[in-house]
């Protein structure tokens, strides 16, 4: 177990290098959120999910929806490292002939189960996928990563009530609770907090973890998987810009491209190539 956790930490480190390299080379993208979801995505794609890069459409695969689609550099890096497509695609991010759109596109990129990026919609699409599993006789899980700011969208709560009604076990929502949104701290922008009691009141199975600790992420995902009679939510406390100290606490990194100097500094910290 300890070895495996070290392996996952190493994969996450490489993904963080890929994220910043993609954004630096593309000259566009959202580094802060990509870095905050990296460990959650690493756990799902390298440890938990039943997927097959050689057969990305296999019907019984687990589904994943990145509701906060702007964090897609993390997902693209994970998919490439997992073998869904070549890592040579990564620098094409957001460019005209690339398979890697500015936000996830299920028809352009192998391994993407749902188009996303318009905030708030992932949970309800995930609910549809869970209901589809019942009708098609599969027992796959559907994972959704949503931001905390994104929970301000009304459709999130429409999905919360409907998933409770349908006792949608196998729907597992991870909240990337990094505390920041585009215009500032979530607690200043809205009256969203506290988050967990709201979902508990809606009848969801709820857990709270450190979203950068594989020691906590993996058991929480296992507990969520074991709870098949109601939907699960994992409130994962994360840090926007995690892994790159000079990005932490500076929300300009929500959407910002590192300068050459900043990029090299980040690579020195992460142990990546400096050019």
């Amino acid at each position: 177990m300890q070895n495996r956790i070290q392996e996952l930490e190493e994969i996450a480190r490489q993904i963080r290098i890929d994220i910043l390299t993609m954004i630096y080379k593309a000259g566009d993208g959202h580094p802060g959120a990509s870095l905050s979801v990296t460990d959650l995505i690493t756990a799902l794609y390298f440890e938990v999910m039943n997927i097959d890069p050689a057969n990305p459409q296999k019907p019984d695969r687990d589904r994943f929806i990145l509701s906060k689609g702007h964090a897609c550099p993390a997902l693209y890096a994970a998919l490439a490292r997992r073998g869904f497509f070549s890592r040579d695609e990564l620098p094409g991010l957001r460019s005209l002939n690339s398979m890697l759109q500015g936000h996830p596109d299920m028809n352009k990129t192998p391994g993407i189960d749902s188009t996303s990026g318009s905030l708030g919609n992932g949970i309800s699409i995930g609910l549809g996928m869970v209901l589809a599993a019942r009708l098609t006789g599969y027992d796959y899980y559907t994972y959704v990563i949503t931001g905390d700011g994104e929970l301000q969208e009304g459709v999130v709560w429409e999905a919360a009530t409907a998933a409770a009604k349908y006792k949608a076990g196998r729907l597992i929502v991870l909240v990337d609770n990094n505390g920041l949104q585009s215009s500032g701290p979530v607690e200043e922008v809205s009256g969203l907090y506290p988050i967990l009691p709201k979902w508990e009141a809606f009848g969801w199975h709820c857990q709270e973890i450190d979203g950068h600790s594989f020691e906590q992420i993996l058991p929480a995902l296992q507990k969520a998987r074991d709870c098949t009679d109601r939907p699960s939510l994992i409130l994962a406390h994360t840090v926007k810009g995690c892994g790159v100290p000079f990005m932490i606490g500076d929300n300009s990194w929500h959407k910002r491209v590192p300068t050459a100097e900043e990029y090299q500094q980040a690579m020195r910290i992460l142990g990546g190539p400096c050019s």
């Binding site: 019907p59 589904r63 299920m106 189960d113 749902s114 919609n121 309800s124 699409i125 995930g126 609910l127 549809g128 996928m129 869970v130 209901l131 589809a132 599993a133 019942r134 009708l135 098609t136 559907t142 009304g154 459709v155 429409e158 999905a159 009530t161 409907a162 009604k165 349908y166």
Partner: peptide
């Protein structure tokens, strides 16, 4: 089994349908 009512929530209804269709229904 093939009747789904998500309540007075049209956005959720359309998104659920998208999820269902993405899985072949």
């Amino acid at each position: 089994d093939r009747f789904i009512d998500v309540g007075i929530a049209e956005q959720n209804a359309v998104n659920c349908a998208a999820g269902l269709a993405a899985c072949g229904l």
